[in-house]
């Protein structure tokens, strides 16, 4: 490498200042002007995170949000060369550093997970849609589903509540399925019961509905005609909403 150790060190010191605000041993700069770089770098991070997590930004206490973004910007070495993917690293950093406990926001991980999934689905590369037929036997045949989806399990209903007190009051087991509409590219989400979340998970694994129903007693679920018929009704409704594509030909 042609770069001298000194120049390398200068570049490191400058970039570290931009991320952390700590002035290292750096000469030959206008210190008042350096502050602009730090501000600009932080603003890029802040803008990207506000855009990616609009619900969190709008509803978490401003001081906590600012503290999180500043810590992330200064402490985390971002690996993505695409700015739009940086918020995934923010979410991961939040989980790894137990920000939900540190900032006393028990539902933080759920909220960041939900918002990231929405953004990721909206932007992600197109996945091939398998060949399918529209008609078939709902119980016996393999049901083909929209491949662009995320099935998420939450402790808190962050997908439908923004009020902290209401969110905390409704701690439990929540399931949300997000998927991208083929024509518009818009992301839809539906709340699922634990049973339907299990059904969707198994259908995505290629299990037929009759086999899923046969397994239900192991989950302490009593299989009745009503359960079967209501599950089929749900899937038929999902076909009209383009989550269910059809049946394997």
């Amino acid at each position: 490498m042609h770069l001298s150790a000194e120049t390398y060190s200068v570049q490191q010191a400058f970039s570290r200042y931009c991320r952390t605000g700590k002035k290292g041993n750096l000469s030959g700069v206008q210190t008042d002007r350096m502050a602009w770089y730090r501000e600009m770098v932080f603003n890029i991070f802040a803008d990207a995170l506000e855009t990616a997590f609009p619900i969190a930004f709008a509803n978490l206490p401003q001081g906590k949000w600012d503290s999180m973004t500043k810590e992330f910007c200064s402490q985390h070495a971002c690996q993505s060369y695409q700015l739009w993917k940086m918020p995934l690293e923010f979410y991961t950093y939040a989980v790894e550093n137990s920000w939900d406990e540190k900032h006393h926001i028990p539902y933080l991980n759920d909220l960041l997970s939900f918002e990231w999934a929405e953004l990721e689905l909206y932007n992600m590369e197109d996945l091939a849609v398998p060949a399918f037929k529209l008609q078939g036997n709902w119980l016996q045949e393999s049901i083909l589903l929209n491949p662009e989806y995320r099935l998420l399990a939450f402790k808190y209903p962050v997908h439908k509540e923004t009020n902290r007190r209401k969110i905390l009051q409704q701690a439990g087991a929540w399931f949300v399925l997000l998927y991208r509409m083929p024509e518009t590219g818009l992301v839809q989400f539906i709340e699922l019961s634990p049973w339907l979340a299990f059904v969707m998970e198994q259908l995505y694994a290629g299990i037929t509905l009759s086999d899923i129903l046969a397994y239900a007693p192991d989950l302490n679920i009593t299989v009745t005609d009503t359960l079967a018929s209501e599950t089929v009704l749900f899937l038929q409704e999902m076909q009209t909403r383009q989550l269910v594509l059809g049946f394997q030909p």
Binding site: L3, T7, S15, C18, R19, V41, A77
Partner: peptide, 24 residues
């Protein structure tokens, strides 16, 4: 440069005007 210490900063930082930087 926009990456240093294995960290992307998503902004354009000025390179020292030096001959070793030119060669690099």
């Amino acid at each position: 440069y926009s990456k240093c210490d294995n960290a992307h900063m998503y902004d354009l930082l000025p390179v020292p005007f030096r001959m070793d930087a030119v060669r690099h």
